[in-house]
């Protein structure tokens, strides 16, 4: 137990941070849950308690259902692209740590994770442009018909997955490389003595040893995928007179209900759905870690 004088210092030192936490995190999280159980439109003076009515309405709201399907497809799509690709790239870059270009590889792969999203999304928007974009031009060399990437409902989702994966890949690679550095060397020695090739060692040593980290990266990527918004916002918006198709995602639907329809209680219910998804994913992560006996 701590001496009293020290405890007083500790609590005093924490006080400003705790006050800020209460103010900008804990109270708003409480409020969003409270709001989700009430009907509050801009016009209404009082906010009656309506239990789970908002959530019941959500299950019948075609726009919300569209949003949750799109968001889920995007989140899992990004993980499906990023995790395998990230593992392979990390292994290759790690293998070439001593190469003269190692720093260049790492910088190039990581840079998209850092740059501002809006300018980057604009670059991709031009790449995907149906009439003037280089992607259709490149496909043309192979005799593939030009596609209207940003207008087709399915392709527009694909475009968002590509953009998000491009941004997330560097994060996955950096974390995986750190994980690979921590794999005990003796395991590779043993694998080599047993006559394993480099690819077999990757498959049977690296991948199993990295399982907790792969899980961590997958969950972080899924969570950020469920929060996708800006990417769609920019890629769908208007340039040269042709608005793309606005892919309805969860955050977009929530913001529309709040700031366009002024249904704050209803929007809060959507926020609570997002919260439940994120909590569920986190619990699954911890559950799997425990089950596998991972070094969490």
């Amino acid at each position: 137990m701590l001496r009293r004088r020290l405890l007083v210092f500790a609590l005093l030192a924490l006080l400003p941070t705790l006050a800020v936490y209460a103010w900008v995190r804990i109270v708003p999280i409480g409020e969003v849950i409270w709001l989700s159980l009430h009907r509050w439109n801009l016009m209404s003076r009082n906010k009656p308690f309506i239990g789970l009515d908002n959530f019941v309405e959500l299950t019948r709201d075609p726009l919300f259902l569209d949003a949750i399907v799109n968001t889920t497809v995007i989140a899992f799509g990004v993980v499906a692209v990023t995790v395998p690709l990230g593992l392979i790239l990390a292994a290759l870059i790690y293998h070439r740590t001593r190469a003269r270009l190692a720093g260049f590889y790492e910088t190039a792969v990581f840079l998209p994770h850092v740059v501002s999203l809006v300018p980057a999304a604009m670059a991709w928007k031009w790449i995907f442009d149906a009439r003037l974009g280089p992607l259709n031009a490149a496909l043309g060399w192979f005799g593939i018909e030009p596609q209207s990437w940003l207008f087709d409902p399915v392709l527009a989702v694909v475009c968002i997955i590509v953009l998000c994966s491009w941004q997330t890949l560097g994060f996955a690679v950096v974390i995986f490389i750190v994980g690979m550095k921590n794999v005990p060397h003796v395991l590779y020695e043993a694998a080599r003595l047993d006559g394993a090739t480099a690819i077999q060692a990757f498959r049977h040593v690296t991948v199993p040893m990295l399982r907790p980290i792969v899980l961590y990266v997958s969950v972080v990527t899924l969570v950020s995928g469920f929060n996708v918004y800006a990417q769609g916002f920019v890629m769908a918006s208007d340039t040269q007179g042709a608005p793309g198709r606005l892919v309805r995602v969860l955050v977009l639907d929530m913001l529309e209900n709040a700031f366009r329809n002024y249904r704050f209680g209803y929007a809060a219910a959507e926020a609570v759905v997002l919260l439940l998804v994120v909590l569920g994913l986190t619990l699954i992560q911890f559950g799997l870690l425990r089950e596998k006996g991972g070094r969490s």
Partner: peptide, 14 residues
């Protein structure tokens, strides 16, 4: 625990 909650969840009350 609050770190798990994404910003988008509580930004409307904020």
């Amino acid at each position: 625990a609050t770190a798990i909650v994404p910003f988008e969840v509580y930004m409307i009350p904020l």
